[in-house]
């Protein structure tokens, strides 16, 4: 689940460019860098709240953009909680109740485990190229690296965010920062990606910080601990049966 988010933010692949590429080209390059067939990762999320921060650890299996399965491993309270995303549906399983609950409607807007991310954020279709018109609007430096600044305008109705700005590493084609705006131009969310690491020939950001810009607070950190790309994932893992 988390994983889809990371995925869309990370979506990319490296290929050095000599002249300024078009927005679409950059998006494709990002996609090439980040899009692996399958991804298996262990990660943790550090959420800051009124009572200090807490850490949630989990393992995720994902395939493409459509299918993802997450199992929480820590803290003990959340251990055994599983989430399954199949296309636009999301289920959650809690071992203590032995119930599978589909997260729909109103609940999709709730924050995930108290983080600055909602279930909906996680459900978002990561395919930016088909939903947004991208153009390069500037150059900038983020974390000491030269970046293209991409502006993405929603191509049609129904996108969660009307405008996105993405700062993309010119060499590695990894997004290093993303800002999400409403129709009125208001900055709603900011994501910062760092600790870009070479994994199986791809550049991956291993730390991502999400921040709801309207809310006070430090935001939510997402840290990838291990990541395996293109390893085989058993087919049955992406089924409701695997939740229980």
């Amino acid at each position: 689940m988390k994983n889809t988010i990371i995925y869309f933010i990370i979506t990319s692949i490296v290929s050095p460019l000599f002249s300024q590429p078009s927005g679409k080209e950059i998006l494709n390059l990002i996609d090439k860098n980040l899009a692996a067939g399958t991804r298996i990762m262990t990660a943790k999320m550090i959420i800051s709240g009124a009572r200090g921060s807490r850490t949630i650890e989990f393992k995720t299996w994902a395939e493409g953009e459509e299918r993802a399965f997450t199992e929480y491993t820590n803290p003990p309270r959340e251990k055994g909680t599983k989430m399954l995303k199949l296309e636009d549906k999301l289920w959650i399983f809690s071992p203590s109740t032995d119930r599978i609950i589909q997260i729909t409607g109103q609940m999709l807007r709730q924050s995930v485990m108290g983080s600055d991310l909602s279930y909906e954020d996680m459900m978002e279709d990561p395919d930016l190229t088909s939903h947004y018109n991208a153009s390069v609007i500037a150059s900038d430096t983020v974390q000491g690296r030269d970046c293209w600044v991409l502006q993405l305008n929603a191509a049609g109705e129904g996108e969660a965010y009307e405008v996105r700005k993405i700062w993309v590493d010119r060499e590695r084609f990894v997004p290093l920062r993303e800002e999400l705006f409403g129709k009125s131009g208001k900055l709603l969310k900011r994501t910062q990606l760092s600790e870009v690491t070479r994994i199986q020939g791809r550049w991956y950001p291993m730390k991502i910080v999400f921040k709801d810009m309207l809310k006070a607070g430090d935001g939510t950190q997402f840290i990838i601990e291990t990541l395996r790309l293109d390893d085989p994932v058993p087919e049955n893992i992406f089924s409701k049966a695997s939740l229980k």
Binding site: I47, R54, S96, I101
Partner: peptide, 16 residues
């Protein structure tokens, strides 16, 4: 019935 809510620490809770 199942109760779905948020704990004191912000975690999700699901209890029957």
């Amino acid at each position: 019935v199942t109760f779905i809510g948020t704990t004191m620490y912000g975690g999700m809770t699901i209890v029957n």
